[in-house]
Design a protein around this nucleic acid. Structure first.
Lengths: 154, 154
DNA sequence: TATTGTTATACTCTATAACTATA
DNA sequence: TATAGTTATAGAGTATAACAATA
């Protein structure tokens, strides 16, 4: 054959791959896809899983607290909470002290859902961990901690 | 004061923070935000920057090749390419051998834009690198390489 | 038949402004 | 006035089905 299929030809990715930002994006997208596939049985997205986990760890948390913990603005968090309330895994109860506030709690169904989903996530995380050496895990953790604290200098 | 503002109260993030997938997502989002802010002067988004870089590194590349290199499906890549063509930084030329194919090239304006943007990205990447130790850089790189190759076992 | 690029569509995520009800 | 939650809206990313032109 004189002309191969375009997809089989060699593409030079080196100029892009040397950027840490590019690597982080690719890894996040890749890991996120497998994560979603694992959670698909419970019809949960990553954000929804995080919301359930944080509400169980912090019963009575307010929407704004949840949003700042997850870096999601209140307008963007409302539909997520709304979906979970509709599924009856999350409850919104008005705060007795301040009627502007809504306190969030898991329902019994929500606790059961989270228990199963978290077990699956832990299996996934164990597999991820096992793909790395102890040294890689150690310095990956410290590097990620520094990168999350990275701020612009100018 | 007997009741503090909700946002000032302590939220327990520990159950979430121990997950590598959560850490990766948070770091990616954080670094991506600063990256976008740096590129804002050139009115470029991360995907657009990647497209320009890959096209310059691979003149005449086809849309499908570009898409598989960036893990973006053809329907989702078309509007990105369209925007860049409208800005006259990217050119689409029909392939002489196969009239279904469109070969992509940078215009002179595109080359100039990329040169400035890439210099800015390199400054950003240098600052990122400087926030890490040599050991962290080394094992972060090898860990990310393994994670991008991670596949589901079942 | 199979493939490239494209159109259409829908859903999620993100970002901003403005509204309501409470304080 | 200030704040919590909400509504509305728009842009960007992601996913799938289907189409026309070409091979």
């Amino acid at each position: 054959m004189s002309s191969a299929s375009p997809n089989e030809e060699e593409i030079d990715l080196s100029r892009l791959q040397r950027f840490l930002g590019y690597q982080l994006t690719r890894v996040k997208v890749h890991v996120h896809k497998i994560f979603l596939h694992r959670l698909a049985s419970w019809n949960l997205m990553a954000t929804e899983f995080s919301v359930l986990l944080l509400v169980e760890a912090n019963p009575g948390i307010y929407l704004r607290q949840l949003g700042s913990a997850l870096d999601i603005s209140p307008p963007n968090l409302v539909p997520v909470v709304e979906r979970l309330v509709s599924r009856e895994v999350l409850m919104r109860l008005p705060s007795p002290n301040d009627r502007r506030l809504q306190q969030l709690y898991l329902t019994d169904a929500g606790k059961q859902l989270l228990q199963q989903a978290e077990a699956e996530v832990k299996r996934f995380e164990a597999a991820l961990d096992q793909s790395l050496t102890a040294t890689e895990r150690k310095y990956l953790a410290s590097a990620l901690k520094k990168l999350i604290a990275f701020q612009e200098t100018d």
